[in-house]
C-alpha cells in the first residue's frame, strides 16, 4: 500500500520504518530541514514542507495514497492534515497529545478514522516489562477493555483443568489458546491447561485481578492491575 506519514520525528520515523520493512511504499512530510535530512539519510522519500497544507500533501502524492498518518506533535497540524487527506479519500490516522482527547476526537472528528496516543502504547510496553513473565497486555481495546496474554505456570490454580472448567468472571472471555510450543488457536472446551500454555483473555480492567489470580495465581498479585487507570 501507499502511505504518507506527516512528521519525521520519533513517532513518524519509526512508523515509516515499520511500514517499509513490511514492503509498503512510504513518503514522509517534514518541515524541519534537519529532520528531513536525517530521514533522507535513511533513504526515505521526504517532501519538505508543512503537512497541514494541501499543496504539500499533493506533492507527497495524497491523490494516490491509501492512508495518511498525521503523527507530528502539533495537534492543529495533524487535524488539518486529516481534513485534507479525507477530502482526497484517504484513510486517516491522527496522533493526539493527551489521553482525554481520544474520546472527543472519536466522537466528533468524522475526518479522523483512527487515533493514536503513543504514550499509551509506550505505557503498555513498560507495564509488560515491569510485570514480567506470565501476563502480558496485548492491546487496550476500549477505555476499560483489554486483551492480555497469560502464560500458565506451575503455580496456576487452573493448571491441570480444561478450558471448560475455567470459571472466568462474567465480563471476561477466553479468545485463544496455545499449547506450550504451538501457535495460538481457537480455544476448545477440552483443551487442558499445562505449565507453559498460553491463554489470550479479553477482560474488563476491573476483572483483570480476578482473571490473573485464577490463571496465574498469587505470584504477581502485588503488582498493579495491568493497564488500570
Amino acid at each position: 500500500m501507499r502511505f504518507i506519514i506527516i512528521g519525521a520525528g520519533r513517532v513518524g520515523l519509526r512508523t515509516a520504518r515499520v511500514l517499509r520493512q513490511e514492503g509498503h511504499e512510504v513518503t514522509l512530510v517534514e518541515r524541519d530541514a534537519e529532520k528531513a535530512d536525517r530521514a533522507r539519510g535513511l533513504t526515505f522519500e521526504v517532501v519538505d514542507g508543512d503537512g497541514s497544507r494541501e499543496s504539500v500533501l499533493q506533492d507527497a502524492g495524497v491523490a494516490d495514497a491509501d492512508a495518511v498518518g498525521a503523527l507530528t506533535g502539533d495537534l492543529n497540524a495533524n487535524f488539518a492534515a486529516c481534513l485534507i487527506a479525507k477530502h482526497h479519500g484517504c484513510r486517516t490516522v491522527m496522533r493526539i497529545d493527551e489521553d482525554y482527547r481520544e474520546e472527543i476526537y472519536q466522537q466528533y472528528a468524522d475526518e479522523v478514522d483512527e487515533i493514536v496516543y503513543p504514550e499509551r502504547l509506550g505505557a503498555i510496553g513498560a507495564k509488560n516489562a515491569l510485570l514480567g513473565g506470565s501476563i502480558q497486555a496485548i492491546a487496550d481495546v476500549a477505555q476499560s477493555l483489554q486483551i492480555v496474554l497469560i502464560t500458565i505456570t506451575d503455580g496456576s490454580p487452573m493448571k491441570g483443568y480444561t478450558l471448560s472448567e475455567v470459571a472466568l468472571p462474567s465480563d471476561s472471555r477466553i479468545l485463544a489458546f496455545g499449547k506450550a510450543n504451538d501457535p495460538l488457536g481457537i480455544p476448545l472446551p477440552d483443551d487442558s491447561l499445562e505449565a507453559g500454555d498460553r491463554v489470550a483473555v479479553l477482560a474488563e480492567f476491573s476483572e483483570l485481578t480476578e482473571v490473573r489470580q485464577l490463571l496465574v495465581g498469587d505470584e504477581s498479585a502485588a503488582a498493579a492491575v495491568a493497564g488500570g487507570e
Binding site: D74, L75, N76, F79, D97, R101, I104, A109
Partner: peptide, 8 residues
C-alpha cells in the same frame, strides 16, 4: 463549540 486542536 467543541473544536479540534490544542484548545477544546
Amino acid at each position: 463549540n467543541i473544536v479540534a486542536g490544542d484548545v477544546d
